[in-house]
Amino acid sequence: MPAVLVVVASVAADALIDIRDVTKTYGHGETAVHALQGVSLRVDAGEYVAVMGSSGSGKSTLMNILGCLDVPSRGEYWLDGSNVARLSEDQQALVRGRKIGFIFQSFNLIPRTTALANVELPLTYAHLRRAERRRRANRALELVGLADRTGHRPNQLSGGQQQRVAIARALATGPRILLADEPTGNLDAHSTDEVLGMFDGLHDDGRTIIVITHEHDVAARARRLVQVADGRIVSDEVTR
């Protein structure tokens, strides 16, 4: 495995994410849906990218592929120097756990489980020892300002608080990329500001953030805007 990484690193230069001519087709024959039709995208470490598009534009498919939740039908996806499509199911799980932190629209916390246990979960899958897990999870919750809510269950937290727990969970493993899918879609204006403010702070700390959204004011906070329509990238510009 380390040997492969060395070889690959020389090929993929220093881009963190390198998508090359990726196609994704669901179904077969006449009912086939071409969600992505040849998308290429490079994201360097430390970038803050917003991917915008209307519903059905293929931005969710792009997000799934970026997050190793799905594999492209054709094309290559190089993440941090390794070709994701070539990895086994378990290796993909490992990549998800180590390199990517997910933030979902519907928070996706495990129900009936405390905030602390939720944040500990990815650390558990990364085989960390109990004490280390607890320490890191507590620090992540502190970072999102929920140090006093560690014992609360998701249904005892507001939407904004739940999303902050989710951000803490995404940060806990120290991932290379933070992948947020409509992170403010279920939040009120105040919580939206809180979450976006948090993203700004993370970007200032040098994190790579990719936000998928259809809201302009969310996209406006990013430094680079990628627009997707009909399964193709229609514009890619540095905004700030």
């Binding site: 997050g67 939740l69 199911e89 378990d90 799980a93 490992l94 998800r96 756990g97 180590r98 997910f102 996706n108 916390l109 495990i110 129900p111 979960l121 990815p122 899958y125 990364a126 969970r169 493993t173």
Partner: peptide, 15 residues
Amino acid sequence: REIGIRKALGARRRT
């Protein structure tokens, strides 16, 4: 859905 979340967080098949 919970299984999906766990997998997204890096849970392997055998876990």
